[in-house]
């Protein structure tokens, strides 16, 4: 996470070899990225770029999703099966023979995601996946990411959408001006005034709320609505009981 220009996408591109380090080393599963090609590294590290229009070129969604599989040399039979599976998983099966260009913005984003998930990379990097999405679309995305993660895939999200991250509560790496300024759980990092300031972000609403309620003994590292409700609920019930007792 970080503001625009902090270096998030630059770092992401180091992970599949699109960019090579000028100092230091990047390894993926032990392999030095300077010793492997982008195609080789991409087998394990899949990047879903922000704008789907940078990827789409095929006549049908099916071909689009199968493109990478063909590049990686999968058998035709396997390609067909993987494409079917991925289309099902992303609710795109009914669009299989449609031109990707006829789909809406949100649907094209799903096709782009499908195109990368098709080869089931171990590490999935999503570059700004929430931009321009409405709340429902973000909900669906969040559930999907959590599902992927529970299947054992590593998911890296490059984003500045603090509320979305607050809902997922993942590990957060904060960047600013090309450096990593903090690493930790989302609720710790995003509720820290100093770090937020350094990374030029804003605190999630819950964190803002609780930082102003510390006089009542609440912890500061609250970013999730449900945890907030629980904590407030307890205290408010206590107050209610106390008020009832004293009257």
């Amino acid at each position: 996470m970080g503001e625009n220009g902090a270096g998030k996408t630059t770092l992401a591109k180091q992970l599949n070899g699109l960019l090579k380090p000028t100092l230091g080393r990047v390894t993926v599963d032990g392999d030095d990225t300077t010793k492997k090609s982008v195609a080789q590294l991409s087998r394990k590290v899949g990047i879903v770029f922000q704008n789907p229009d940078h990827l789409l070129f095929s006549e049908t969604v099916r071909e689009e999703v199968g493109f990478a599989l063909k590049n990686f040399g999968f058998e035709p039979g396997v390609v067909v099966k993987q494409v079917e599976r991925t289309l099902e998983a992303l609710d795109l099966a009914h669009y299989a023979d449609t031109s990707p260009f006829l789909l809406s913005g949100g649907e094209r984003k799903r096709v782009a995601l499908a195109a990368v998930l098709a080869w089931e990379p171990d590490y999935l990097i999503l570059d700004e996946p929430t931009i321009g999405q409405d709340y429902q679309q973000k909900e669906r995305l969040r559930n999907f990411i959590l599902q992927l993660n529970s299947q054992g895939k590593a998911v890296v999200m490059v984003t500045h959408d603090v509320e979305f991250v607050a809902e997922c509560n993942p590990k957060v790496v904060l960047m600013s001006k090309g450096e990593i300024v903090a690493q930790g759980q989302a609720d710790e990092v995003l509720s820290d005034d100093g770090l937020i300031e350094k990374a030029s972000l804003v605190k999630p609403q819950m964190a803002k709320l609780f930082s102003q309620l510390s006089e009542f003994g609440f912890p500061r590292d609250v970013v999730d609505v449900h945890r907030a409700k629980m904590l407030l609920g307890e205290k408010l019930s206590e107050v209610r009981v106390r008020v009832a007792q004293s009257s």
């Binding site: 699109l18 991409s42 899949g46 770029f49 940078h54 990827l55 493109f67 990478a68 590049n71 990368v116």
Partner: peptide, 15 residues
């Protein structure tokens, strides 16, 4: 944009 497209397609195994 051209650079981004090249990056995106290379990330799909295009050599």
């Amino acid at each position: 944009d051209a650079q981004t497209v090249v990056d995106a397609q290379r990330s799909r195994g295009l050599e």
